[in-house]
Amino acid sequence: MSTKSNILFGIYCPPHPQPLLAPELNQGYGNLRSAYDTLKTRIEESGADIILVYSTTWPSIVGHQIQAHPEPEWTHVDDDFHFLGSMPYKFKIDSDFSNEYMEAAKKRGLHSRTVAYDGFPIDTGSIVALSLLNPDNKIPACIISSNMYSNRSETIVLGKAANDALSTQGKKAVVVVVASLSNRMFTEHINPSEDRIHSPKDDEWNRKILEFFKDGRLEDLSQLSRDIHGQIRIQKVAAYKPVWWMAATMGQHNNYDGEILAYEALHGSGGAIIQLTPSDGSVGDKEFDEDDVEYYQGDRNVLGQGAL
């Protein structure tokens, strides 16, 4: 299985700007920064053709938007953490792949479009990830948004479409999922040196999720996604989607070598940097009870069914 994968390895990392802008403010931020640096080298040495970023801090509404500007450039400032400084960026995007991904998504029933506008506001999470993991643009990237209204089936199909596009173009990818674990931040300003996970409950859940990651049980995490959403995600969007997309893109199984490079607090939220590499071993034999889905049919008209 692993020999045929289009994905060399996957990375899960947080969207907050502290590791980029202020790693010196807290040892944890510094640890996260070191983990990014380690992965930067591993990506460079991986032979990847593309870095595929799925960011939870880029919401879309009209279908699934995919960044396709060949050289997006701007100086970004975060809505909350503007006082930490600005984030100038210039990325190299594989526009050919972006267009292929859009077509692949359409073939699976999704509404999708590319965006390629000067000055388009790339989100904090994507900027942090690409600036730290690929600072010299040695490898072209593609960024995918997270549709506000989409739920499981749509997100799984979106992940599969990414794999279709990689197969069509014969490209090997490193996938990067930008998301917190627990995402409850402190609602007041804190002294960064006193940062910690918001509550023991969030911390315990984060550590349980990290056990799964460490064991390579990505499909199990995908199955647990709704529980995670209910327990440690503030309800900004319909569902906790990043592990659905990651699992679908990487092959929907538990055969990975997992490595937790860092787990630290970011203004109270759980920031983990994780690498998952396809392997031959498998952990567990869980029965997957949420249905697999290949093609997105749109919302079911439940209200209109069964009425007399």
Partner: peptide, 8 residues
């Protein structure tokens, strides 16, 4: 320049 992230 303001570019709308949803409706660019």
């Amino acid at each position: 320049l303001s570019v709308d992230p949803i409706f660019p």
